[in-house]
């Protein structure tokens, strides 16, 4: 019996060490579905975060604000926009759409051509043409934004930025009681 005991202990040690190494030692891991420490400071994220970051990098590389220039749908939501401003901006955006249409159509056709395959010899010309069109679009949109920002006040541009960030106080939407004084104040502003 005494001769067998060391063997039993040896076996137990072997099993325990195998078991522990197989089962790992990381006591901080809550479970299999948890994200490891490192990326994004371990805060929860949506799966398209990398895509968004890549898009941002691309824009930064191109040195353009192509996707940051607010579109008409966003601009028309600025709470303090007057009727006259709205009309002027609508015209500007409409003009811009018309101006950009041929360029965008050409880019679309090139994308289709690209997806169907182009010969290696065409590659450089093709890419240069795409860059050229893209630059024209960027320049046109920057011109548009310059015109738009001439119509908007600094406060409105700030509001637009706050809307995109979600920091504009929603109270501006709903906390105005229709008291007589408030009503008259509003009315005066509306008439102006």
């Amino acid at each position: 019996m005494l001769k067998i005991l060391p063997c039993i202990f040896g076996l137990l040690i072997l099993i325990t060490s195998t078991f522990c190494s197989a089962y790992g030692q990381d006591a901080t891991a809550p479970n299999i579905f948890s994200e490891p420490q490192s990326e994004n400071e371990n805060i929860p994220v949506f799966s398209d975060n990398k895509k968004r970051a890549a898009k941002k990098r691309l824009n930064d590389t191109l040195g353009s604000n192509i996707d940051k220039i607010p579109n008409w749908q966003q601009v028309k939501m600025i709470p303090s926009l007057s009727g006259q401003q709205k009309r002027q901006l609508n015209v500007l955006y409409k003009q811009s759409r018309e101006e950009l249409k041929p360029l965008l159509d050409e880019l679309k056709a090139m994308k289709t051509q690209n997806s169907q395959g182009i010969t290696p010899g065409q590659n450089i010309d093709f890419r240069n043409k795409a860059i050229d069109i893209r630059e024209q679009i960027v320049s046109s949109r920057q011109k548009l934004w310059s015109n738009v920002s001439n119509i908007l006040t600094d406060k409105q541009i700030k509001e637009l930025d706050q809307m995109k960030q979600g920091t504009l106080t929603p109270a501006t939407f709903n906390d105005q009681s229709p008291t007589a004084a408030n009503m008259m104040k509003k009315r005066r502003r509306f008439i102006q």
Partner: peptide
């Protein structure tokens, strides 16, 4: 699809921890 397995804590870790 939901969580990139290769970067995740292993199944055996979970067993050990729990």
């Amino acid at each position: 699809k939901f969580n990139r397995l290769e970067q995740y804590t292993s199944a055996s870790d979970l067993m050990y921890k729990q």
